[in-house]
Write a protein that binds this DNA or RNA. Structure first.
Length: 509
RNA sequence: GCCGUCAUCGUCUAGUCCGGUCUAGGACGUCGCCCUCUCACGGCGAAAACUCGGGUUCAAAUCCCGAUGGCGGUACCA
């Protein structure tokens, strides 16, 4: 199935035969970023479409910044989105022997050398260059040392960058070229046991036989360096595809400062993984036609890396909201009730933050009280609640946000109970009549139809103005300016609770 | 500063490779109307873009050159 239409785009040089192999290689130095998640998604889609292999590799060479909790966050995030990997997770921290081997090879061949310059010296050099308006790069002082300088310890291992142009063909950007003579000799390792990013990437991509490197555009300028290492080591050059960055509203690289960048916080805020996947896929890409709702499996059949946009894409939460709504529409009430489980559970624990999640959703939920515990535990109550509130929810969290009053008695505001331009006395009369009518319905006959009929009678009896009855009744039930209609609410609440609220409001107005 | 890269409605995009079918299509959002006790849903409708300047051509959103602007990188982070 994935083979269909494979011929059209990129006749891949060097990747003939064999399945494609791609990797997602995040570093566990923070929660999985939404932009990284999209990179993972593009890799995953590409692998699925081409019947290839998707590898997960944790780039934790920076021991000081890498944390186990973040690796867990990455794995949880990918799992949540349904992006399963075929190989891994591999950890660079466990692959030191490989890096050492190739480091030694480079040193032996003379393609790399020990540098004895101290940080201070380098910093001074850098400042000097910068102040002259020159690009700051290493001057090459240790490049051709005959012997180690006496009494000085090696500070780093540098790669001898040849003075050449490096060109490569990016699947998204076309031909890209850099002048390597501007780089200066780059540090590839602190020592044999502490290789650096650009070097480990090259070794791992080669050893893992990666055919396509699909990563963020912020890595574009690393590519020529990596190609140089590949050439020195005799490795095959993978095909590159640098996908555009996800941007803040001001078009700068999406950051915590302006946006919610942690993937999993979208789960906490009540977004559906299918919606997030759909949305992320469309940041920079769109299949043919006008359809907007594409589940992951269909995305995988249509995905075309060469059709990805070259320009960055602004993250528009409103469109995400809309997509999330579209996906929620496809869920039966019962399924939404099930999905709401963790949200109610969290609210029960004390509204919000839970264990280290630091979230906001559900924070205002009335988390105490018998009423709350009973109702969030009652599937039939919840099903009715969902049926009534679902047209108002963008996210799962919205159900809790908008529906608080179903789970606890609202606070009454006398002014709110009186309709705009209406009289207090009229509102009181309407409420009193409603209370009587409601009380007259048999408990077991308290159906939506019966309640609707009773309300209609009250309207007729009090003068026929619908708003004069419906507004006070609804606000008595919800305590809110905006809410579902009174009959709907009462159908969920039941006779006893409905009557209790109407009478309570009667005391206030 | 230097290197690289990008440029269609407010936003995501279709169209650009193979110039005419583009009086530039869709979606989100916005606005208006209908429905309506409120909000939401739903229905109908509207406003809204080819960054600018040259060139090539009978014809350019599409090809070429330049300018401008944005973004990314410039680490012994990844």
């Amino acid at each position: 199935m994935y083979m269909k239409g494979m011929s059209e785009r990129s006749a891949i040089p060097g990747a003939s035969g064999g399945a494609v192999r791609v990797r997602f290689a995040p570093s566990p130095t923070g929660p999985l970023h939404i932009g990284s998640a999209r990179t993972a998604l593009f890799n995953w889609l590409f692998a699925r479409r081409r019947g290839g292999v998707f590898i997960l590799r944790i780039e934790d060479t920076d021991a000081a910044r890498s944390k186990e909790e973040f690796e867990k966050d990455i794995i949880d995030g990918l799992s949540w989105l349904g992006l399963g990997w075929d190989e891994g997770p591999f950890r660079q921290s466990e692959r030191g022997a490989h890096y050492r081997k190739y480091l030694e090879e480079l040193l032996a061949k003379g393609d790399a050398y020990y540098c004895y310059c101290t940080k201070e010296e380098l910093e001074a050099q850098r400042e000097a260059l910068l102040s002259q308006g020159l690009p700051p790069r290493y001057g090459g002082r240790c490049r051709s040392l005959a012997a180690p300088p006496e009494g000085q310890a090696p500070q780093a291992i540098r790669f001898k960058v040849p003075a050449t142009k490096v060109e490569f063909n990016d699947m998204i950007r076309g031909k890209v070229s850099f002048d390597a003579s501007l780089f200066g000799d780059i540090v590839i390792a602190k020592n044999l046991a502490a290789p650096l990013y650009n070097f480990t990437v090259v070794v791992d991509d080669a050893l893992m036989e990666i055919t396509h490197v699909i990563r963020g555009e912020d890595h574009l300028s690393n590519t020529p360096k990596q190609i140089l290492f590949q050439r020195a080591l005799g490795f095959a050059e993978p095909i590159y595809a640098h996908i555009p960055l996800i941007l803040n509203a001001d078009r700068s690289k999406m950051s915590k400062r302006f946006s919610d960048t942690a993937l999993l916080s979208y789960r906490r805020r009540g977004y559906l993984p299918a919606a997030v996947v759909n949305f992320l896929a469309f940041l920079g890409w769109h299949p043919k036609g006008d359809r907007e709702v594409w589940p992951a499996d269909e995305l995988a059949k249509a995905f075309d890396l060469a059709g990805v946009q070259a320009a960055g894409a602004v993250f528009d939460e409103q469109k995400l909201n809309w997509l999330n709504r579209e996906y929620m529409k496809t869920m039966p009430d019962e399924e939404i009730v099930r999905a709401l489980g963790p949200f109610f559970a969290r609210a029960r624990l004390g509204g919000g933050a839970g264990q280290g999640s630091g979230g906001s959703a559900g924070g205002a939920m009335p988390s105490s009280g018998k009423l709350f515990a009973e109702r969030t535990d009652d599937p039939e109550f919840l099903r009715k609640f969902v049926a009534v509130e679902r047209s108002r929810a963008d996210t799962l969290a919205d159900f809790l946000e908008h529906g608080k009053f179903f789970f606890a008695l609202p606070d009454y505001d006398a002014a709110l109970l009186v309709p705009q331009g209406g009289l207090r006395e009229e509102a009181r009369a309407a409420l009193a009549a409603a209370a009587d009518a409601l009380a007259g319905i048999d408990g077991r006959e308290f159906t939506r139809e019966a309640v609707a009929a009773a309300v209609t009678d009250v309207i007729t009896a009090t003068g026929g103005k619908r708003g004069a009855v419906l507004w006070p009744l609804r606000t008595a039930l919800s305590g809110l300016r905006a809410s579902p209609g009174p009959v709907e609410i009462m159908d969920v609440l039941g006779k006893e609770e409905s009557l209790r609220r109407v009478r309570k409001a009667l005391d206030v107005v």
